[in-house]
Amino acid sequence: MAVTVEEVMTWQVISVREDTCFKEVAAKLFEHGVTTVPVLDAGGGVAGVVSEADLLRTEEFRGGLAPTDSHVTWRAAGTSAGDLMSAPAITVTPETSVTVAARVMNACGIKSLPVVTADGRLLGIVSRHDVLKVFVRSDEDLERQIRVEVLNRALWMDTTRVHVAVVDGVVTLSGRMCLRRDAVIAVWMTRQVNGVVDVIDEIDCDRDPD
């Protein structure tokens, strides 16, 4: 039911190799309007990533503003992607939910994540912009998913009397169900649908458990 990275990621990825020089990395970032590029090793695996910040740090170092941290100094003094990259790369798989991807980007303070296969090969890249796609889904699309995947398929209970209305991502569930606990489950599962902003519970119940 949750939207996965595979559904929103960018498949055509701009990447560089570890021996790609500073100027070529900068040119790719500028030409393609991206802020980060994955760095591939000789076997095609993702060895790390180079960002605009990494390149700017290098220019600061060359201008005489040497960083005090020795590790940062070593990276800033580099001339190739392999020297400049942040490693190991923080990655996700196609099956990762966009919610998890968003949490990883937020926790790590990064704007995008390489998407890799089980053996580490680059498949694509997912950005904050891609993740936001799930929150701009139409109300009609959300209503359809809730009816089909939550009420009709996922819940082992009678939901024929439940009505769904969605306005600006806010879902209102109304109608009747047999038990209050069933209504609670329906509301909880609806909240898990990517793109749902909030759920208003207006379900009446025939009886409450003893």
Rank of each mutant, 00 (worst) to 15 (best):
V5P: 02
R103P: 02
A165T: 11
C205I: 03
A89I: 14
A81Y: 08
A27D: 13
F30Q: 05
S70W: 09
V126M: 09
G175T: 07
D83V: 13
N194C: 08
V116S: 03
L55S: 04
G195F: 03
G64I: 01
N152V: 04
L142Y: 00
V197I: 15
L151K: 04
V162E: 01
L55K: 01
T160Q: 14
G45I: 08
M105F: 14
V116K: 00
L132H: 03
V196L: 07
D69S: 03
M177C: 10
A165C: 13
M189S: 09
L56T: 03
S127R: 04
F30A: 02
T73E: 10
F22C: 05
R128G: 10
D206C: 06
D19A: 06
R121H: 14
E140N: 05
K133T: 04
L173Q: 03
D210S: 06
E59K: 05
G124C: 04
S112A: 12
A47K: 01
I110D: 12
T117M: 12
A66T: 10
A89Y: 15
E18T: 13
H32Y: 07
A154R: 06
G45Y: 06
E143R: 04
F22Q: 08
A47Y: 02
A87T: 15
Q145I: 11
A42L: 00
S86V: 15
G45W: 05
I200R: 10
S80N: 12
D19G: 08
T36W: 00
V100N: 12
T117F: 05
V39C: 04
A2N: 15
T20F: 04
A89Q: 13
V72T: 11
N152A: 14
T96N: 11
A27H: 11
G124H: 09
V171L: 09
K28N: 08
D206N: 07
V50E: 01
V115W: 12
L122R: 06
R207S: 01
V148N: 05
R57A: 14
R103Y: 05
V46G: 00
V171F: 09
R57L: 14
Q145P: 02
V5S: 01
D210H: 10
T190G: 14
V37S: 01
V98C: 10
V5I: 15
P209E: 14
V199L: 10
D130A: 03
T20L: 03
K23N: 12
P209G: 07
R103C: 07
V115Q: 06
F135N: 04
Q145V: 14
D19H: 11
V199I: 12
A186H: 00
S138F: 00
L40S: 01
L65V: 07
R103L: 10
L173T: 09
D158H: 08
M157D: 11
G169M: 05
G120Q: 09
E149I: 10
S127A: 04
V39A: 07
C205L: 04
A66M: 12
T68W: 05
S70L: 06
A77E: 09
T68E: 13
T10G: 07
C178S: 12
I146N: 02
T36I: 07
N194F: 07
M177G: 01
A42G: 00
I125K: 05
I90H: 08
I203F: 14
